[in-house]
Structures are given as structure tokens and as C-alpha cells.
Design a protein around this nucleic acid. Structure first.
Lengths: 346, 346
DNA sequence: CTGTTAGCGCATTCAG
DNA sequence: CTGAATGCGCTAACAG
């Protein structure tokens, strides 16, 4: 069972069995270490030698084994990202920008889907940590204590996103869902609305936005707000169901939705019932879906800039990766804010 | 710089520096190999010993280093997935089901976004192959020859999805976009439509569906079909723009869209212009978005069951992973089909 | 059922 | 600028 490589050097790309650094080194007529350097730190190697190595790489079809590299260097160039779901994800823009930033710097992405379950998240964190990622990104700030413990012990940069907390595991980049609720309530009250309706899917952050809204409304004397909670994830159908539910409970003037997707469903249901938006019914959404505000000229929404958030996350991680000493470890606690886009002119 | 572990065994979970198998073995009073077995093949170890090991694992906070494990065993338990984009992805259900299936079997997912570029895909494949994934999933069948070469040399299961081809790299699970176009054309002609309009984003598969439709219409004497092509990715705004464009070129009776997202945008634009669907304007979409068919009771669509596709992909990969000899390597070339859901009763 | 031996493929460290 | 030695943490294969 001779496994040492004795491939025919004159027949390039002929074998499937793994080509190693040693093979490349032999073909190039240099030491393995020189190949490694030529590939990763070419400035330390004479141009001529680099060229020989590169030719040998092409000739052999060598693909560096990053498992071995990561093990030896104790750096994986891997970032784990944990999201609730990929369906209709409000995180889409954030993830896109984050991954773009990481990829541009040579990092790769491990994805895990928690399905809104802190227990699932715990298992995923445990498993993903086994890959020794250089950093990890988690949606939200609500984790089991075991998860938090693991993460703190891992001694790698952790970014909790799309939320804020006073007791972050490490870094936080997000905004206050309570503030969103309050801001929306005040905004709508300021516009003179009297009869409210609220629709949310059963997502922790969405619920907090809506509950905060309802609480703020109560503070202004508006109580017993009809509130429809539907199963996650948010879909257009859920939005339609939500509006149907609200209408059955007496039609509101304004419907606030926990997400743009839901709001789109509400618009669809309104259209099919012949309700004019915003004349008969005003609708407010929430999200970073690029086109959300364009669904209907009449749809208002809370806009969060996912692309910027994603870039900031990538930036925060890359800065940490580049940090030499702990002195360089900037603390990131970023309130990314949000804005209310009001399309209405009632 | 002593790096060998000499942690205080009585102070559990006290250190961040990596706990290794050897540490656990020492605490448990067994050999390292026994720890490995107790963790991965407990049926080969006496229950009592397993228990000792598990206790030691908890006491030390050990997290197995899968980089080392993968290197030694030549199995990474990693699957790479390459998609065009994560935004409004028509693949969402597919990916969700695929990842669920893989996760349930202990596999983890490396994600890469190609942005609809075969060159980007090529670079990603090269980089991801460095992690030595046990399998790889690619959206579509259009790849650079370098990509194909790399993939074939890698000797791992490859699944091309959401399309069909006569010359697959390895396995294929998808359907014919040409057939979709033809089927839609015939269906709509059969319903008596005369004036067609088509909207697509600049996505290879979407374009093929639409071009096939237009070609089939031509075969039936309908030529010069207005065709709006907009920049990817598909958004609601693109749909609105598309309809505006078509209306400027003389209103069609029926608008066929390359995706449900686009169709939703068309519905929104139609609503804001006071056009009744399907009375004034019929709309046809395409996708696997769970709620798409519920946007409007009047929206027709081509339905592809992404969840089933995802399950099949996971199944095909897992079967390959389990295959002992090449004899067990089932060839998978699966036409998953599609169906036309017609909501209209003109 | 458990232990021992020998690497997996690479990068760190030091010598030249 | 290049090379040689050493080991990252784990598991396959074999021995007991």
C-alpha cells in the first residue's frame, strides 16, 4: 500500500489522489517550505523561485490542504454565521455584504440555521466551534448560558448582530428593537391615527418591536390593540392571514407589521378585498429588503441598512483578526440605528 | 513558552487555551484513542469507560478539533454549497431542506456566493476545495472548464441543481427550463391569450425559461413579444419597472415573469395603476416561494418544490458518502419536474 | 474491549 | 533568501 507520491511528473493533472506540498516542491526542485512561502508570502522569496513554484503548482494541479494548514498555523480563515432561517430572510443584505467583505479578505463562511431555537443554536455553536473558526457571528443576543460559556471560552471574536445588549459576549452591532417600536408608535400617533392593528410572526425580535409599540401606545392611552401573532417564518400568506384576522376583529386604520414580507401580504390581501392603501387602510412594514419600500408607493416602513451592517461586521472581524496584541482589540458596540420612511400623505 | 497542558484538573472549564484529547484522556485515566472511540464509536467501548470519558469531557470543556480529525481521517464532514446570491433567493427552500438533511447527519455547510459569475464560481470552487469538503453542490450547470476540471479531479460527489444537462460533472437534480417555457406558452395559448409580455431579470436560468417561452410562442405564430430584461437580483421594484416598461410598449393581456418576486412587483404596480388582475391583466410567476401562490388569488405560477429538491440533494450526497465501493455509487440524474398552478378563471 | 505506533499535510522556528 | 527539523490534534491499523 505504497502511498507516497510517485506520479509521472511529465503527465500533469493526471491523478485524483491528493497532490501535496512535497510533490510540488519536488517538481519545482525546491524545499517544501519554499513552496509554502512562495504561495503565501511571495515577497520573501526570489521572483524566479516563485515562478518555478507557480509553474509546478499548475503542472501538478495542486490545491493547498487548508485543513493541514489551519491545524499547523492555528488559524482557520473560517467564520461561522448563525441565522434563524434563510427563507425570506431579513438578514439577506447583511449576510451578502458580510460574506462579500470576508471573501475579499480570504475568509470562508460556515453557515448554520437555528430555526429560531436557542437549543439548536447551542448545538450548532458546539459543532461549529469544532472547526476552529477565527470568528463567529450570531443573530440576536438571546442565547443559552451554555452557548455563552462556550463562546467566551473559545477566545475568538464574537459578533452579536441585529440587536443590542448591555452584556454582550464580545462585540455587538445592531439596534434597539424597543426603540423601533416606540419610534413607530410616536410617529403614527403624530399622524393622528386612532385605530391600530399589529401583526407579527413568532420571531423574538419582531415580537419585541411590536410589544414595545403596543406598550408605547398604551402609554398614550391606546389600549387593547388587536395583535395577531403567526408562526414563523414570515411569508406573504401570513400577512394575508394577519390582515384577515384583524379585519374580523374590527378594521383598523393602520396596520403595523413585524416585517416587510408580512406587510406585502397585507397589501395583497387589502388589494383583493378592494381596500385602498393608504386611503382605507395604512400599512407599515420593517426590514432591509431593498425593494420593500417600492411595493406600493403607499407603504411606509422602518428601514434598516443591512448592507452597511454587514460591512461593519466584516470590518469589525477583520480588525480583530489583524490585531496583534490585546491592546489592539477595539471594543465594538455599535448602534446602527434605523429610519422611518413614510410614504403616506393622508 | 511551555505549551503542554498542565492545567489544574480540579478547576474545570478554567482555561481558554485548547483542551485536547490527551487532556481528556489523562483526566479520564484512559488512552487518547479510547477517548476518540468513546466519542465517535461508543458501541466499541465498555459503557463504564464511555461514562468516565464523558465526565472528563464535561469537566475539561473539551471541544474536538475537527481540523485535526478531518486531516487524520481524510473525511471533513463538510459540504460546500455555491449559490448565485442569498437575496430573495428562489433557492431558499431548497437550501433550507438540504442543510436540514445534512445537519441531521452531522455534516456542516460551507457557503459561497457566486453573484451569477462563472469566474467568481471558479475562484470559490478552488478555495473551497482547499477545505477538502466531502461533497459540493452547485446551482446550475454552466461552469467554466477550469471549474469542471477541478471538480472532476477532486473525486468527491458533485451535485448540479435546479437545471439539467446531458453532460453532468457527476450528479444532477433539477428540471428543464426550456420545458417550463414551452409548457407555459402552450398553457397560456390554450387559454386563448393573444397579447403577451415577458419580464425577466438577467439570470441565466430565468432567461432560458423566458426565451423558450418566446420561441414556442413564435412557433405558434406569435412574434415580436415585448421582453423586458432587468438587472439581477429579482426585486419587487424590478417587477414594477418591468410592467411599466411593458405598458409603455402597448399593454399585454398576460405578463409572464421569470420569478415570483418579479410577479409580485408586477401585481403591486398593477394595483397602483388600478389594473385588475386577472381581469385587466393576467400575471404568471415562477418559483418555490411557499407563499407565492397566495400573493393574489389571481396570480398563476409555475411551482417547483424546493423542499423536495433539497431533500433529494441531501439524500443523494449522504448515499454517496455511505457508499463503500464504487459499485454502490448510484448515478443520480433526476428530473424533478414542475407544475403550473393556474388561479385564473377568465 | 483497550493501548501503541505512525503518520495526515502543512507552518513555525531556527539555522544557514 | 532558502532549508531542516518538529509538532499541530487526531485517527487508522494493528497488537494485545
Amino acid at each position: 500500500m505504497a502511498r507516497k507520491s510517485e506520479r509521472n511528473q511529465s503527465a500533469p493533472e493526471t491523478q485524483g489522489t491528493s497532490v501535496t506540498l512535497v510533490d510540488v516542491a519536488r517538481v519545482a526542485g525546491v524545499a517544501p517550505m519554499t513552496v509554502s512561502r512562495a504561495l503565501h508570502r511571495p515577497e520573501l522569496v526570489r521572483d524566479e523561485t516563485v515562478k518555478k513554484v507557480l509553474d509546478a503548482v499548475r503542472a501538478t494541479g495542486y490545491v493547498p490542504n487548508m485543513l493541514a494548514g489551519s491545524l499547523a498555523s492555528n488559524k482557520s480563515r473560517l467564520v461561522a454565521i448563525l441565522l434563524p432561517t434563510i427563507a425570506n430572510s431579513i438578514f439577506a443584505d447583511t449576510v451578502q455584504a458580510l460574506m462579500d467583505g470576508l471573501t475579499a479578505s480570504g475568509y470562508q463562511t460556515l453557515l448554520g440555521l437555528t430555526n429560531y431555537s436557542a437549543e439548536t443554536e447551542e448545538q450548532l455553536v458546539e459543532a461549529l466551534l469544532g472547526r476552529r473558526p477565527d470568528g463567529i457571528v450570531l443573530a440576536g443576543t438571546n442565547h443559552t448560558s451554555a452557548t455563552v460559556g462556550r463562546l467566551k471560552k473559545a477566545k475568538i471574536p464574537v459578533v452579536e448582530i441585529w440587536d443590542l445588549t448591555d452584556r454582550p459576549i464580545d462585540m455587538v452591532i445592531g439596534f434597539s428593537h424597543e426603540k423601533v417600536g416606540i419610534a413607530v408608535a410616536r410617529h403614527l400617533l403624530g399622524k393622528g391615527y386612532q385605530r391600530f392593528g399589529v401583526i407579527s410572526v413568532d420571531d423574538p425580535r419582531g415580537l419585541r418591536r411590536c410589544r414595545s409599540l403596543i406598550k408605547e401606545l398604551a402609554r398614550h392611552g391606546k389600549t387593547d390593540i388587536p395583535f395577531e401573532i403567526l408562526p414563523a417564518p414570515a411569508t406573504l400568506l401570513r400577512g394575508r392571514e394577519g390582515l384577515s384576522g384583524l379585519l374580523a376583529r374590527g378594521g383598523p386604520e393602520i396596520v403595523v407589521c413585524s416585517s416587510d414580507t408580512l406587510a406585502q401580504g397585507v397589501l395583497a390581501e387589502a388589494a383583493s378585498r378592494g381596500l385602498h392603501v393608504p386611503g382605507d387602510l395604512a400599512v407599515m412594514g420593517f426590514g432591509d429588503l431593498s425593494a420593500a419600500a417600492h411595493v406600493s408607493p403607499a407603504l411606509s416602513t422602518v428601514r434598516v441598512d443591512g448592507t452597511t451592517i454587514g460591512r461593519n461586521i466584516a470590518g469589525a472581524l477583520l480588525a480583530r483578526f489583524a490585531a496583534k496584541s490585546d491592546k489592539d482589540r477595539v471594543a465594538v458596540h455599535l448602534d446602527t440605528g434605523f429610519s422611518i420612511i413614510d410614504r403616506e400623505s393622508t
